[in-house]
């Protein structure tokens, strides 16, 4: 199982875990990281907007486009702050 730690990992976990739970947060971040040519362990704060976009299709399916957009913007904001 992929693990992600540090500030970026904790940011992603804070946003995604309450919705998706621990297992899906880890697997979906791992899948999205691969899509942008990285691994969950090497994601940096600059990667968050791209990562958020890569996560969008899965979120869209589960919670609809509108709610997915809300999560994606929250992640992008976190990446900027």
């Amino acid at each position: 199982m992929t693990s992600f730690s540090g500030n970026v990992g904790s940011m992603l976990r804070d946003v995604l875990q309450p919705i998706l739970g621990d297992f899906v947060t880890k697997t979906s971040v791992s899948m999205a990281s691969k899509k942008i040519g990285k691994t969950a362990e090497t994601i940096t704060i600059e990667d968050i907007p791209k990562l958020a976009d890569a996560l969008r299709p899965a979120l869209c399916t589960l919670i609809g486009a509108q709610a997915a957009d809300s999560v994606v913007s929250k992640l992008v904001e976190l990446g900027r702050s």
Binding site: I19, L20, G21, F23, V24
Partner: peptide, 9 residues
């Protein structure tokens, strides 16, 4: 089961 711990469960 996959969504355990999240609201979507």
């Amino acid at each position: 089961l996959a969504l355990r711990g999240g609201l979507l469960k």
